[in-house]
Design a protein around this nucleic acid. Sequence first.
RNA 1: GGGCGCGUAGCUCAGCGGUAGAGCACCACGUUGACAUCGUGGGGGUCACAGGUUCGAUCCCUGUCGCGCCCACCA
Length: 928
Amino acid sequence: MLENRYQPGAIEARIYAQWEESGAFRAGPPERTKAGAPTYCVVIPPPNVTGSLHMGHALNNTLQDVLCRFERMRGKDVLWQPGTDHAGIATQLVVTRQLSDRQINYKDLGREKFLETVWEWKAKSGGTIVNQLKRLGCSCDWSRERFTMDDGLSKAVLKVFVDLYAQGLIYKDKRLGNWDPEFQSVVSDLEVEPRDHTGTFKWKRGEADKEGNPVAFDPARLAKVLDKDPSGHMYYLRYPLAGVAYDADDPATYLVVGTTRPETMLGDTGVAIHPENERIGHLIGKRVALPLCDREILVVGDTYADPEKGTGAVKITPAHDFNDWEVGKRAGLDVINILDARGHLNENAPEAYRGLARFEARKQVVSDLAALDLLEKIEPHTHAVPHAQRGDAIIEPWLTDQWYVDAATLAKPALDAVRAGKTRFVPEKYAADYFRWLENIQPWCISRQLWWGHQIPAWYGPDGKVFVAHDEAEASAAANKTYGKSVPLTRDPDVLDTWFSSGLWPFSTLGWPDKTPELARYYPTSTLVTGFDIIFFWVARMMMQGLHFTGDVPFRDVYIHGLVRDEKGRKMSKSIGNVIDPLDLIDQYGADALRFTLTALTTQGRDVKLTASRVEGYRNFATKLWNAARFAEMNECVRVGDFDPAQATETINRWILGETERATRAVTEGLEAYKFNEASGAIYRFVWNVFCDWYLELAKPILTGDSEAAKAETRATTAFVIDEILKLLHPFMPFVTEELWQRLAEHGPRRETSLVLAPWPTHAGRQDAAADAEIGWLVRLVTEVRSVRAEMNVPVASKITLILTGASAETRARAERHEDTIKRLARLETLMHADTPPEGSAQFVIDEATVALPLAGIIDIAAEVARLKREQQKLQGEIRKIDDKLANAQFLARAPEEVVEEQRERRVDFVATVERLSAALARISASG
RNA sequence: GGGCGCGUAGCUCAGCGGUAGAGCACCACGUUGACAUCGUGGGGGUCACAGGUUCGAUCCCUGUCGCGCCCACCA
């Protein structure tokens, strides 16, 4: 006997263990593959190996699991490929911090020892997220779990690098990159996050205070402001014209440039002015004396310098600004790198500044310029400052040697594939983002100055010549050939961008570069489920690399979901303190409730705003289902092995079987279209509002009645429908459904499979329009009686009489067939027929019949009159609207015939009802 | 600066060319043997605003306002 509550905590772990032991999640089960089952493959977006499950994972993996379970039940051979990502920067940061907590500088450990530490930590905490995914119920084939740094995947990475290098698609280049001076690595464009900064310092040369005295520049005050935030100001600097004596009061002797990073002026090698700048264009070709530096720099003409912006003259620092780099290249300017890896001023800076940290240099340069009367003004200026996505440091454009992928070449097939529809984005709008990014793609910087990751397979000879090879032996062989003798090689210390290896995920996990059966069978994969935030990072890279190396797209569909936010729509963040831990919700409400909430809230192209009340509501839903099953068990609704729904004769059974099919269609179509909210909503409404609210209530009189035949059929139908419900609900709520599937089988015939592998319901054409109409009538009648009772304050306990007047033969027959049910649900003493309603009755109209509830002494006549009039007025309003339409010649002429006809029919119904209500009103008045 | 999205009940959101919906919250009544994690009934919406298209607009178009996101720029 089922308990009266579903207790997820006690059940989930046991059920999950059963699934795993039985191999239910294994891909390629012989009975399916032999039967030629189609495949369905999803690769998990590999979570960081050291991470723990957050709400984004919960959403992402719930959706994948819903799809995988759905397709598995549809008979497909499903592979949900799991695994984890080594997450270079994130992991190295975490371990580095842990070490520094123990007063250990990771650099002192040395590379080898440090990596050992990371692997140890991975061994210790790497299983966390996997276990958490299991708690969520994820049906991954864990026997195939992969890690981006395991041997197989490393082999794939190696081959891809070597091949791309051989094809000229990977190259080493010295160019500006995004340098993180704290982490001391380059990061890709995508790993840079612009954040707005606004300063507070304001000063202008010659500006007077209230007393009329010029305000002197105060270096100490500037330092104080910059210590809080080094960014957020625009500085206007004067560069004296070369060969002209600088006269602070004569603008003809200098040029003014604006900058937000004044310290970079120490690396200026030119000033740019638009060639058509009428005001200062004449200075092009002249030279200016670069202050603080013993150098003169050229004023060049370049259209980059917008005459309308700033002063019209732009200082050019090719080594420290991406735009300046381009201008410098065009104008042939020198490149002077003034920063070291830590972001300190190096030997290329004037001696006074060497060794200063970049923001110290900023203060110093500004103060020194002010002292020379070369500072024109400083204004607070809101502008976006590039920050490292991980670690928060302000990013510095810095000149380094790095490895790049020729992304533009790889992007072309990736663009074509989506244009040709070989891969489809759902929702479609995300394809536009994908196109825009790939069409403007820059070379992809793939080297990172880290230790944790795939070390770049490049070795350098004594003269720096590069040998890219699968291993050192191969590199040596190549080197020996080149040099004609054996030479010592040193390996490139850098590792690859994590996304370089995750970009291979859909095929590297299937065994590529080996020609494995899995690769042949499951690639291209079916659906990729991921958030919009990694379309560029990951989806685009998988498309590029997948197409290049396998010749086919990595997946057919890309389903993009939104972010999980808090109830106010804010991102969940530790600093706001609004993070909801999915594990807490699972502990409190069960994994099923959380999963159902996430699917119910997932509407295409929209973020999910999570509220605990919603989770609670769906926990209640699980309880509701549980109790429906409990009711079935108590009433001996046991599955009948050879039950044939088509042979059912009881109206309620024929009706619920048709409704079950409708629900099946709605859930199936919803999932096929990735409309998770529609699919989950359909099963929710069916279970609660149709099956529990009506069917079980309608079944009660039969189940306690005298007709053994009707009882048997109703029991069998109930058991059958519950089975169908468990199947339809299983992808969303796998635990409670599986538990009920097994518990209910204690009574009936043995189950052939666990619910995981049970066949998805089909539609077999069991709709019965007559049954639908009859139950529809019944529902309306009962609802209306309840409504009137409540409105008339008829005590629940008092049984009343219902009198049908003007009923057709059909209605009379229906009333007779369902007399017990109606009496029970409407709480009636008797149900009878009469020609006219008795005096003092509350009345309402159902179709052609007027229903009277004799409530003499109970009803308030005035209230009843008001109620009937209100009904009438509502209908008359509708009739007026319809009349307006029907009186409109344009409407009759242009609206589709069926719409016009529908309006006419509605009008007939409304008018008839109004007339019956009028009759009812007349009777009431007469009796009152 | 470019692009995308959103604005519907108190809240969170569906929907959509012709009858405006759900969950939660709220109000009233109720423990009748599946379920109070429940049942029954009820209140609550000029569908942001202004134009336009249409026989008909919450829905399509344009604009305005408000909010959010992405990209670019950030002298």
